[in-house]
Structure formats: C-alpha cells, structure tokens
C-alpha cells in the first residue's frame, strides 16, 4: 500500500537572516509533515519569528538550512511561475489597489495561469467565479474593492489567493484588523475551505482561543525558535501552550482554555449556583478583584444565584440578605458589605 504523499514536508528547516559573522537564526531547525486539507495555525508571542517562518515557507526568503518540499518539490528551487501555481499568499498589511472591482481583483489571481496578454479563458473565468463563491463574496463581486469593509476585503483577498489554485495557502494574520464576529467568520471560512477543497492552509494569528478551536494543527513558536507542533489539545495538555505564553501578568487557565490576568483578590466570596449566569457572575467578580470560592469557611459573604426567569442574585452576609437585580447592583452590594465589615473590624 502506498501511503498518501504528504503535501508539505519540512526537513530540518531553519529560518532567519544571514549576517556577517554567522546567521541570526530565528526559527530553529524543525521537521514536519502535513497532509492535504489541514488548517494549521502558527501562534507564538510577538517577535518570536512567525512572519519570518511564513515568509520562508512562501518562498519570499531562503531558509537558513534544510528544505521545504511542497508536493515533493523544493519550494526554494522551483521558478517563480511554478511556485505561484502551487502556493498563494494573503498578506496582513492593508492594501489599497487602484480602481478595481472585487471581481477584477480576484481575476488578477489567475496571473500565473494566463498568457502574457492576461486574457481570461472560459476555464479561468470559471475558477474566478468558483473562488468568489467559495468565500461567499458573490454580492461583492461588482463593487469597487476600495468601498468594502475590512471583513469583506479579507474575503475578496482570500478569493484572489484561491483563484491561483494553490495547494498551499499562506495567510499572515488574516484576522488582525477584524472585529470579533468577523474573526470567527474568517476562521470558520478557512477551516471549511481546508476541509472541503483539500487545500492546506497555514496561517499565523494572535487569536489563541480561535486557533485552539479551529485549527487541525498548531505550530507553536515560542521565543527561542523551537517549534512545537501538534493537535491543539495535545499542546494544551502537555503544558507547551502555557509555557510559550507564560508571563508575570498573564496565565493560561487550562480549565476554560482562555488566558486571564490573575488578580490576587484580597476579598473572598462564596459563589453557589451553575449555568451561564454563574460563568458571567464569576467573570464579573474576578474582574472586580474578588477571589471566588465554591466552598469555604463561614463568615464569608455568599452570592447565590436565584432560580427564575430573570437573573437575580442574593447576597448573604451573616444575618443580612440583599437581593440584586443586576450584576452592577451585586457588585455595589458586595462593596457595601465590605465597607461595613471594615468599619466594624476597626471599632
């Protein structure tokens, strides 16, 4: 049985910049094999060298050592035209093109496939239309690119890259300028593209949460340049994820899969109840500097979630009880008890 040929195969590839008296190595040598149809997210702290790695894989700079094979061909040895038919890119910088409709812009992606005149054949047009359809930009095609919102532009730019009919699509922080819903949308689009078309997508991102949820693989690039690759969950469970991003003010909460800035709340509060209301109440309390406990010694203020259609909270502090109708009231109430406790302890 022949095993499926890997789409991308890195052999001890390292990346960086040649300098006088030895190179400045940004990414240490690493080997990876990627099958078709994967969405790989490259994550790592700022300045670790994500862009350098992407630029190297996109053939925009030579690797310091090792090789990168795309469908068996060395990315850095193929000529520019061949590379353009196997690999396309979406850059992070905001782009101002001239007066082009989105459709015309997508059609520019056919560049490596057309003759020197640049005339589109029927097949070229079909590919352009399919690319537009794949990103869901049908309604944008006749509009001028410069009139689109950031999210719409990103779709069109992805469609342009698809029109090159690549095996590998490389995106440098495609979610950088987008608002949160647009980020989720773009990520879902890329994940579906990889799954449906067999295209392999490599993207860098700072949206760790989205990357953890959407990527089939994560390449983790911590400072020092030792790439750790694996399924997102494996990286989290092995602690590699937290190690890469750990700092004095930020910690990765393995329970929720999110980063938070731990506040060593001096005031402790008991919180009982469950569900969505509990999650958001806990967030509010932690934001306000309380340490939230599920059970604890007597004498602490306790916040109880009230059953019922409307969200209500009950604060129990010693003999006193207060009903709150909103989180804002809840916080204000806890502060009142706090002050009273302080005052009584001073007496």
């Amino acid at each position: 049985m022949m095993s499926q040929q890997p789409l991308l195969h890195l052999q001890d590839m390292s990346a960086g910049y040649p300098q006088r008296g030895g190179a400045r190595m940004v990414v240490q040598p690493f080997s990876q094999t990627v099958a078709p149809g994967k969405l790989i997210c490259l994550i790592g702290p700022n300045g670790a060298g994500k862009s350098t790695l992407l630029r190297t894989l996109a053939g925009m700079q030579k690797p310091l050592g090792g090789r990168a094979l795309l469908a068996g061909h060395d990315i850095h040895r193929m000529n520019a035209g061949e590379r353009a038919r196997r690999l396309s890119i979406v850059l992070t910088q905001k782009m101002e093109v001239g007066m082009f409709t989105s459709g015309e812009l997508v059609a520019l992606g056919r560049h490596p496939h057309t003759s020197w005149v640049g005339r589109l054949s029927a097949q070229d047009r079909a590919v352009v239309e399919r690319s537009i359809r794949l990103v869901g930009a049908e309604r944008l095609a006749s509009r001028f690119f410069n009139t689109l919102s950031d999210g719409e532009r990103q779709k069109v730019l992805i469609a342009r890259a698809l029109a090159q009919e690549p095996d590998l699509l490389i995106l440098d922080e495609p979610t950088a300028y987008l608002d949160l819903p647009r980020r989720v949308e773009t990520m879902a689009l890329l994940r579906d593209l990889a799954r449906q078309t067999g295209l392999t997508i490599l993207m860098s991102t700072h949206d760790l949460d989205l990357a953890l949820r959407s990527a089939s693989h994560i390449w983790l690039l911590p400072e020092g340049g030792q790439v750790r690759a694996g399924a997102p969950e494996d990286l989290v469970l092995s602690g590699a994820f937290e190690a890469a991003f750990h700092s004095a003010v930020v910690a990765f909460d393995i329970e929720s899969g999110a980063f938070r800035s731990p506040s060593d709340g001096a005031e402790r509060v008991l919180l009982t109840g469950s569900g969505v209301q509990r999650t958001w109440t806990q967030r509010a309390l932690e934001r306000e500097g309380f340490t939230v406990l599920t059970e604890g010694p007597p004498g602490l203020p306790e916040v109880r979630l009230e059953e019922g259609a409307r969200c209500r909270w009950r604060i129990i502090f010693g003999a006193e009880v207060m009903i709150c109708a909103s989180v804002e009231e809840l916080i204000a109430g806890l502060r009142t008890f706090e002050r009273r406790a302080e005052a009584s302890s001073r007496k």
Binding site: A58, E82, A84, M95, V97, G98, H111, G118
Partner: peptide
C-alpha cells in the same frame, strides 16, 4: 500590461503571483 496589473497589488503580491 500584465505585470503592471499585478504590481498594483504591491511588490510582494506581484512576486507571489510569479512576477
């Protein structure tokens, strides 16, 4: 004509399209 159109996207994109 053709490379000029590609250049409108910027040099990096143009290079990535084989210019």
């Amino acid at each position: 004509n053709k490379p000029l159109n590609a250049l409108l996207l910027g040099e990096q994109y143009a290079a990535s399209m084989g210019v």
